[in-house]
C-alpha cells in the first residue's frame, strides 16, 4: 500500500489529480480483468442482482473521492494532521460498523486500535521535530 501511495502521488504530480486517478483505475482494471477470468470463472454469471445491492457498488466511487479529498486538505493542514485525523475517522467508524455488525464491542480491538493511534501520533510528532539521532 505504501508503494502504491508513493506511485500514485508521483502520477498525480505528473498528470494532475483527475488524470492520475483515471490512469490509476485503468491500470488496475487491466490487471483485475485477467485475474478475475483466471481465478473467478466459477462465480461469473451466477449472480442475481437485487436493488439493495446498489449501495455495495459505491466503493469504487468513494475511493475516487477520498483521493480527491486527501489532495485538497493535505496542503492546507499538513500531512501530519491529515494522517492522524484520517486514521481516527477510519478506526472510529470501523469500530462502530463492527459493533453494529457483530452486536459486540471487542476489548482487544479497542485497546489495540487505541495503541496504534497513540503510536501514530507519537510517530508523526517525532517526525515533525526532525532532530533525530541515527541508530545505524
Amino acid at each position: 500500500m505504501a508503494a502504491a501511495i508513493l506511485m500514485n502521488a508521483r502520477l498525480g504530480a505528473l498528470r494532475g489529480l483527475n488524470k492520475g486517478a483515471f490512469i490509476n483505475y485503468a491500470a488496475g482494471l487491466v490487471l483485475a480483468i485477467p485475474i478475475a477470468l483466471a481465478f473467478g470463472r466459477g462465480s461469473i454469471g451466477s449472480y442475481a442482482f437485487e436493488p439493495g445491492d446498489l449501495i455495495a457498488l459505491t466503493g469504487g466511487a468513494i475511493g475516487y473521492f477520498v483521493v480527491i479529498l486527501n489532495n485538497h486538505i493535505t496542503p492546507r493542514i499538513g500531512i501530519i494532521f491529515v494522517t492522524i485525523l484520517l486514521f481516527i475517522g477510519q478506526i472510529g467508524t470501523g469500530a462502530i460498523i463492527d459493533a453494529v455488525r457483530t452486536g459486540d464491542v471487542s476489548i482487544g480491538r479497542t485497546i489495540g486500535g487505541l495503541l496504534i493511534m497513540i503510536g501514530l501520533i507519537y510517530l508523526v510528532f517525532a517526525e515533525k521535530s526532525g532532530s533525530d539521532r541515527d541508530i545505524t
Binding site: 468513494i62 473521492f65 477520498v66 484520517l86 475517522g89 477510519q90 478506526i91 467508524t93 470501523g94
Partner: peptide, 8 residues
C-alpha cells in the same frame, strides 16, 4: 475522509 475509507 477517514469515515469514507471505513465505509468504502
Amino acid at each position: 475522509g477517514g469515515i469514507m475509507i471505513a465505509l468504502m
